[in-house]
Design a protein around this nucleic acid. Structure first.
Lengths: 207, 207
DNA sequence: TCATAGATCTTGACAGCGTCAACATCTTAC
DNA sequence: GTAAGATGTTGACGCTGTCAAGATCTATGA
């Protein structure tokens, strides 16, 4: 009886790992990676500073876990888009570009974590993260091939190179936006449309 | 006489500011931003930990000064390219794309500092840095307009949007490379060529 | 010439960080 | 019901950026 104190006072948290990821995601979104410390996180969750180390080897593992969650959401969002039967192929491509950049603009810190150097630069990604991220990267290639076959993207270009360039384009625009180099998010629509024209016009030429 | 000891033992360094920037640039290149600390830097230069604060308000100012130097070099390199009389316009565009991405691939840490969120995200750039960086950004627009007029890039697209997209493309490819998402630098040539075709083919259609 | 103001450099100190080691407490499985 | 393991705690360490106060040198003007 007495050990059923209010939750906060219990010795074992119950689901600390999940709580850490959730709270960390929220702190990340609100205050950026540079203001996300394990100590503040532990404090926020109401646990001692080293408790997180029983669930994550180090800070990097925590960040990878957050990124994993980001990829899950992102994947859902993208699948939803591609399963929409009301859109033709060009509309899907347009919606993909727009959805991609909008996601980045609305979740800049998460996007940076998912597709930025913090995790990938030193090859510090967890196996678990790679398991969900790599298929996402390859999804990009698969879609490119599809669009080539359907005549939207130029078929004569190597699929892998083309997907690197098209992904590079939307990734680059997203980065310019979220890194504050082009801080003006008001022109997202126009930029997406311009990118789309650059991608697709080829088709009219060869199709 | 006695105060003309070997340089290292003198109380005043002589040209500490310059030394700090130089050494910091070198440490940046070799070990990355995350391993560049003011204390290690001061130690390397042979000066006390707080000496740098008489030349830079804080770490951010030091980073801005390093980036400034990066922009100077970058600008020189690009100007050299554009003043080459042996290249026609398409060759210049090709050389620009290739030079841009190669610069990033060869100076990943400097590139990240110059065009990354560390400095720009929180609008923490020094006035001095802005003075050299902003013209560089606008140079991109000017070139785009030139290439539009010369028929290389589609004239009907808005110059500003087009330049954002083309810059986004090469910036994005550069980032994918240096952030380790596409770690394979062996395909730079092919990616550049693919990007070029995506940019230029328009011209054949409208020209 | 020389004092003095200002530039430059020093040591000391502080709080915040990630992380390890050692110990406490709870849960679970035999 | 006890032993093992999972989970949580406190203490400590070295690293970081930065401030404050004092030391030393340089340059300016009387």
């Amino acid at each position: 009886m007495t050990d059923k104190k209010p939750l906060k006072a219990r010795y074992h948290h119950g689901d600390l790992r999940t709580s850490l990821i959730q709270t960390a995601s929220s702190m990340l979104k609100d205050h950026g990676v540079e203001n996300l410390s394990l100590r503040k996180l532990a404090d926020q969750v109401g646990v001692s500073r080293t408790a997180p180390y029983h669930h994550f080897k180090d800070k990097n593992e925590l960040l990878c876990a957050i990124a994993e969650q980001g990829f899950s959401h992102w994947k859902l969002q993208m699948e939803e888009l591609f399963e929409n039967p009301d859109l033709n192929e060009e509309q899907k491509l347009r919606a993909f570009i727009h959805g991609y950049i909008t996601y980045a603009a609305q979740n800049p810190e998460m996007y940076d974590l998912m597709f930025g150097r913090t995790i990938w630069k030193q090859n510090s990604a967890t196996d678990s993260l790679k398991d969900i991220a790599y298929p996402t990267f390859q999804f990009q290639v698969k879609m490119t091939r599809d669009w080539q076959h359907k005549g939207l993207l130029p078929a004569r270009l190597d699929t892998l190179r083309l997907s690197q360039v098209t992904w590079g384009t939307i990734h680059g625009i997203a980065r310019l936006l979220i890194d504050g180099i082009y801080a003006d998010a008001g022109h997202i629509d126009e930029m997406c449309e311009t990118a789309l024209r650059m991608f697709v016009i080829h088709n009219q030429q060869i199709g």
